[in-house]
Design a protein around this nucleic acid. Structure first.
Ligand code: FES
Ligand code: FES
Lengths: 175, 175
DNA sequence: ACTATACAGTACTGATTTGGTACTTTTAAT
DNA sequence: ATTAAAAGTACCAAATCAGTACTGTATAGT
């Protein structure tokens, strides 16, 4: 469906929130409260992010999570890599070899690989620090393949579908 | 999971195959045979593509499907729009408004919209004619190829996952 | 007209994936 | 020792996919 999973969306939400104070230690419970998500869910996401070294964790009494690197160094592609369990790619036979029987003489596979890399570059061009701001200048423009010629200030009618907060409240910032 | 559905992948496969002889009428059965897919499945995909005016159909005895426009005018984004039933976009609350409770003061939504449009442009830059060739020069770099903005109303069909041919055979070209 | 062919539409079902939750264990501070 | 908080494992319910079957409709050829 060309959508990221809800968990991944939560991940960006959480990381973006944390990027407000990059040095600070956030507890899972605090984040859940601040973002209006369930604690178990937030916990799950954070654990996974920790496993992929996007956040580092501190156990015990005053423990919690901190961004493992400055928010400018965490891209959307990183978050997707961490939270989606299939390898990156729009089609299955383009993300792993040996899956498809006609792989050898498939003429479209090669093109899918290329499309994949274009999309990936687009996602790599956006980092968590960018997400904190309400879409300023043009953090994305650089996506190499697709030049943003012809779309100036006008907001694109792009649609999307993935995950948002159902009955969430973003009291925001501090927990 | 950031994957297109198998059905969508089949769609590109079918359309690419048809692009070999853009004028020719292909029967669903012939395509199924040529691509090593099940007839019901191919049929389903073609029906949907027909509904979205990517192919036109001729019923009756010598009927079949023909590309509704030259392959250069059919982009990957078109195929996705036709075969995926959720509206295009990586996250749900960036797709339709009113879905998310914190939409008004959500700072990341705006960015998702932007990411969506970058990804979409990438997908719009590749057309079926490009797919016929084994990835030549740089069909993508120049979004110029097919630059028509979004078209009509929203699509409908589709699923998500990934897809390749499990035990397929691409006898290829002619049916 | 009759018949064979081929698309159109609808609906169903099994399988897979996802999202969320619960429970148990480990670590650290007080 | 007690408490706070993360880590790990496992599980279940719901949604989504993918494929198939069945019925209807239009066209070509005889
Ligand atoms: S490699 Fe699987 S369809 Fe081309
Ligand atoms: S609009 Fe739903 S999370 Fe931002």
């Amino acid at each position: 469906m060309l959508r990221i999973s809800k968990l991944t969306d939560y991940g960006t939400l959480i990381l973006t929130h944390m990027a407000g104070h990059p040095e600070r230690v956030y507890s899972a419970a605090g984040l859940a409260e601040a973002l209006g998500l369930g604690l178990p869910t937030v916990s799950k996401v954070l654990k996974t992010l920790g496993r992929h070294a996007l956040v580092s964790s501190q156990r015990g009494a005053h423990g919690g999570y901190v961004l493992a690197r400055p928010p400018e160094r965490i891209t959307i592609a990183d978050v997707i890599d961490a939270l989606e369990d299939q390898p990156f790619g729009l089609t299955e036979c383009s993300s792993s070899s040996g899956v498809c029987s006609i792989e050898s003489d498939c003429r479209i596979r090669d093109n899918w690989l290329r499309i994949n890399s274009v999309v990936r570059e687009a996602l790599q061009a956006v980092d968590i620090a960018d997400m904190v701001h309400p879409a300023r200048g043009s953090p994305f423009a650089t996506a190499s393949a697709t030049e943003h010629r012809l779309h100036g200030p006008a907001p694109q009618p792009a649609r999307a579908a993935a995950a948002c907060i159902p009955a969430a409240r973003a009291d925001d910032q501090e927990i």
